[in-house]
């Protein structure tokens, strides 16, 4: 099946794949940055006590988690122009990626903060630390540490999800691969090049997660 892969054509289209790769990288980075901001805001709103602020954040997270990204993407793609918002497909794509991943990021950060025991804060108080010192030295280091690996996991999901932007005609890696298929009637060559490029990103992120876990192992914990 892969024996008669036309390597020459794959090499010939390498610059296109490279451009697609960079576009995917950029779209994912922008989407992830937005997701972190949205996630922090949604998480902050959902753990504070005011009900009328809490409710929208919880509704947002649940609505995103229970619907597919493609439906969310089409919702924005066909819906935004109707609201008079005319922006390029690429921007719609980044907004959809941020909105989607933001909900998962919110859940990840939330579980990090909720994992801290009250006794930790009380111990900080009894040793005379101020609120800011407690936050900086006790709460945040412990709350953020367990979120790093799942956040990298979410970044992996986001990179793969960004392939759906090809369906609203954003030129990224998946689209670049399809162009080889269309130009040369060689779907296999296009798909294989694309898959390999995605795998490079996947293994890089996985390596990062592994290194981070290795370097930040806490004494007494697995």
């Amino acid at each position: 099946m892969l024996g008669n892969l036309n390597i020459r054509v794959m090499l010939e289209y390498l610059p296109d794949i490279w451009h697609g790769f960079l576009a995917t990288l950029m779209l994912s980075a922008a989407g992830f940055a937005g997701a972190i901001v949205l996630g922090i805001v949604a998480c902050a709103l959902s753990i504070q006590p005011l009900r009328w602020l809490k409710w929208p954040a919880v509704a947002y997270v649940d609505a995103i988690r229970a619907t597919p990204l493609l439906a969310q993407l089409y919702f924005l793609y066909f819906g935004l122009p109707r609201l008079g918002v005319l922006v390029p497909e690429m921007v719609i794509g980044v907004i959809a990626l941020s909105l989607n991943s933001g909900a998962y990021v919110a859940e990840i950060i939330r579980s990090g903060i909720l994992s801290i025991q009250r006794g930790q804060v009380e111990a900080g108080m009894s040793t005379g630390l101020t609120y800011l010192q407690r936050m900086r030295l006790i709460v945040l280091p412990q709350a953020l540490r367990p979120t790093v690996s799942p956040l990298i996991g979410q970044a992996i999901v986001l990179v793969k999800d960004s392939s759906l932007l090809s369906l609203i005609s954003v030129v990224e890696l998946t689209r670049a691969g399809q162009m080889i298929a269309i130009d040369r009637f060689m779907p296999i060559e296009g798909l294989v090049s694309t898959a390999l490029a995605y795998l490079v990103l996947y293994y890089l992120l996985k390596l990062m997660a592994g290194l981070w876990v290795h370097q930040n192992r806490l004494p007494g914990r697995a």
Partner: peptide, 19 residues
């Protein structure tokens, strides 16, 4: 397993459908 966990599902659908 890594191949299918590391590539987008859309691509996998295309692979099955075209290859």
């Amino acid at each position: 397993v890594d191949f299918f966990r590391g590539t987008p599902f859309l691509l996998q659908v295309f692979i099955v459908f075209f290859i």
